[in-house]
Design a protein around this nucleic acid. Structure first.
Lengths: 248, 248
DNA sequence: CGTAGTATTGACACTAGTCAAGGCGGGTGG
DNA sequence: CCACCCGCCTTGACTAGTGTCAATACTACG
């Protein structure tokens, strides 16, 4: 396997340079990829939590279902992300996970990760950073949900995805592929699908986004950033160097 | 120092039984307590993040300030909580922290915690659990903010605090002391102070809460839980036994 | 070419926000 | 002990943003 081709290696490498051994260790997590179709539920709330999973291709999301029949989407996972860290210390799933589109995932048992982290302090500290980052993403989403109006919420989300894609999947243009339905966006942003549609239209009319099927172009990043109150500090992280000291 | 008196020991003990050495190790974190007055800012966003702090007495909260002048409160900390875990892997504060009321805090440098965790696998795994739990609390708050109306938000929050206080500060009654102003509640729940007042009044009129200054009584937990869609599973955790195996 | 899912648009309702005035309570100083 | 003041809370009137429902249009896929 070409180690540099592994999504998770590329992702971890973004945090801190990896030795060849670390890369090899990490890559073992992506051994047995399996294809999954759009809409597949990887697991549901309350399932036993004894595995993690890396996302090799396709987008996914975690969600909570409420008594009142609504659904709140918590996180969007992009290729290279580790799914299931939320329950690192728990025995039960606290949220379900579903595929947005067709993709590829690699399941591996909880103990694999623990073993890897026993062998490499570098990887351990990166895991901490990755888990922290997920918490930061959630926090920012919370602020977004609580304090911004529909227009800002949508703009903010588009910028977040744009930035995240740029970091790990180098793309030069100002366009992104956005494979999610407006219903998913609504469940993510705490709005109704109808209002997502209206808001998208409004942003288009103001020349802030151009939509073409699942391709979205952001022709004026500056203005959109301004409008959304978007500050990418929470994505461009300031990672503390390896926790204690020595490497593997 | 009587180890069982330490807030943080009591708190950690809730997760998993601690050996005397572990207790002694932990208690060193609460060495140098200092008194702080209501409203004191422990740190602000963007400050350097090289310390943690345990809350020995009094309530505190973390917050983000937005460009539009509003403030979103992220978490409420109760005595025994560790503050600053959010930035475990970062060098910069991502949220400010302020005291709700007079209290006592113990600062200790980042490296202290790392040293402790080098010495005890048990404590390490509990730290993971504590950090996970904070993420779970945030997640539940996100759902609360995004998907519930004012009445449910307030009811849900009251039940959360009631449950958290019960777990670590054994109290039998159905009353809690709620030292926060309605303005703080508003910033936490994403509502205006005016609407908090109205909602409180409505809940009172329906016999679901009884207010008396800063004392709040929940006379019908059953009905309130129902109304709020509150499910305490996220607080009553299912902690995975020590991560890898051996103790210290 | 038909069908099912997805997106758009309009009319209307409702929750929560804003602004502004008034009340209550606790602390301070006389 | 009383008077005053300052925060904080309450209440009312009005407004704005978003939800809901329903009808219609579009797109992809078989």
């Amino acid at each position: 396997m070409d180690l540099d081709e592994s999504c998770i290696v590329r992702h971890f490498n973004f945090y801190s340079p990896l030795s060849e051994e670390d890369k090899a260790l990490l890559a073992t997590l992506e051994d047995s990829a399996s294809r999954v179709r759009a809409g597949t539920v990887l697991w549901e709330e309350r399932d036993e939590a004894d595995e993690f999973c890396t996302l090799k291709a396709g987008w996914a999301f975690s969600y909570r279902e409420l008594e009142n029949g609504t659904r709140q989407i918590l996180e969007i996972y992009l290729p290279g992300d580790i799914i299931g860290l939320r329950e690192f210390a728990f025995t039960q799933r606290l949220a379900g996970v579903q595929m947005v589109e067709d993709g590829e995932v690699c399941f591996f048992p909880h103990c694999n990760l623990v073993n890897i982290f026993r062998q490499s302090f570098t990887l351990t500290s990166i895991l901490f950073a990755v888990a922290s980052r997920q918490q930061i993403l959630i926090t920012e989403r919370l602020v977004n949900l609580a304090r911004r109006n529909a227009r800002q919420k949508l703009a903010h989300f588009l910028l977040e995805i744009y930035q995240r894609l740029k970091q790990t999947h180098a793309h030069g243009s100002d366009s992104i592929r956005l494979p999610m339905s407006q219903e998913i966006l609504a469940d993510l942003l705490g709005l109704s699908p109808v209002h997502i549609s209206r808001t998208f239209t409004a942003l288009s009319e103001d020349g802030l986004v151009i939509r073409n099927r699942h391709k979205v172009t952001l022709p004026d990043l500056e203005a959109l950033t301004q409008e959304a109150g978007f500050d990418d500090r929470y994505l461009i992280e300031n990672i503390r160097p390896v926790l204690g000291g020595q490497g593997a």
